[in-house]
Amino acid sequence: MLNVNGLQVFYGNIHAIKDVSFYVEEGEIVTLIGANGAGKSTILNTISGLIRPTVGTIEFLGQSILNLSPHKVVRKRLVQCPEGRRLFLQMSVKENLEMGAYTREENDIEAEMADVYRRFPILDERRNQLAGSLSGGEQQMLAMGRAMMAKPTLLMLDEPSMGLAPLLVEQIFELIVELNDSGTTILLVEQNAQMALSIADRGYVLETGSIVTTGNCADLLNDEELRKAYLGG
């Protein structure tokens, strides 16, 4: 479904992504794990079209999306839920959800809106409140809900567990599995490697801009070196 090949990205003189290749098959949950600064977000932003790569190809559903503007990438139902949530804090909860469905017909989004409110009753209660007034956990729910409103075929999640209490992290990961079960392919970027590997099918381990290990999550979880480096022994 998504094929990234020989990707190289420079930030000025910094070689941020060095020859990264990976793929995501339809129906999978694939995770990119790695420490802060390994280049995970850069890869997602390059796929979304916010950053232009120097070298490499990116294909989605058999078509190159390399030079598409971000708003055109979204229209292909390749949606990113960015790091740090990036909600519109001065808009209401409802307006944020409507922004998530920006590429869709306005009278066609009721079903998803109802679905989001059903999953997160707290958002329903606060639908007219400003997103900026929500707690961190509620904001993450809203960010997930906003991404769902776009009806993605492939959803890229950037650190959905960041800064959340363990209970909330579990809730978010359950939701990711549910979304995947209902047909959404997931590309999950995480620092919480243990959690990510426990729900994903396959994983790629990123270190300073290169993929160092890849494999099935079961194998990665048993990898001695990986355990030491990312999973706390």
């Binding site: 971000p70 979204v74 960015p82 909600l87 519109f88 808009m91 922004m99 998530g100 776009a150």
Partner: peptide, 17 residues
């Protein structure tokens, strides 16, 4: 809404389409 979104966070607005 798009105007307000761009005003608040240009990149996030782009990611919404």
């Amino acid at each position: 809404r798009a105007m307000r979104a761009v005003s608040e966070d240009k990149d996030a607005a782009q990611l919404m389409g």
